[in-house]
Amino acid sequence: MFKSCIFTAVLVLLFWVALSASLLQAQLTVSPVYKMRVPTYRSMPMRSTVIAQVKGAATTASYN
């Protein structure tokens, strides 16, 4: 009986934490401050850069 009460209390606590987090996220996305955000390097999508390979004549350096 006591274990089921603890389990129920933990489930209720997790439910309220998840609900409050989702409501805060929804409130944040609706707020005008969130829309005025300047994108940073972390929020911008990363593009892979392609390095072109240039084929040229092989040169050897001699040191005297």
Rank of each mutant, 00 (worst) to 15 (best):
Q53E: 15
M1V: 05
L14Y: 01
F15E: 02
C5T: 14
A21D: 02
W16P: 00
F2V: 07
T8K: 09
V17R: 01
M36G: 10
V38T: 14
K35D: 09
F7R: 14
L13F: 01
L14P: 01
P39I: 05
S43T: 08
F7W: 09
V12N: 00
T59M: 15
S4E: 13
N64A: 14
P32C: 01
L14S: 06
A58P: 08
V10C: 04
M44Y: 03
L19E: 07
R42H: 10
A26F: 05
M36K: 11
R47V: 11
R47A: 13
R47W: 09
V38L: 10
V10L: 15
T40C: 05
P32R: 05
I51W: 08
A61K: 14
V30T: 14
A52W: 05
V33Q: 14
V33H: 06
L14A: 06
P45E: 03
A26T: 04
L24H: 07
A18S: 08
I51M: 12
L24R: 10
L23F: 07
S31V: 01
W16R: 00
S31H: 10
A52G: 05
G56M: 03
G56N: 11
P39H: 04
L11E: 08
M36I: 07
L11Y: 03
W16C: 04
T29L: 05
I51D: 07
L24N: 10
M1F: 12
I51C: 00
F7Y: 11
S22P: 03
V54W: 08
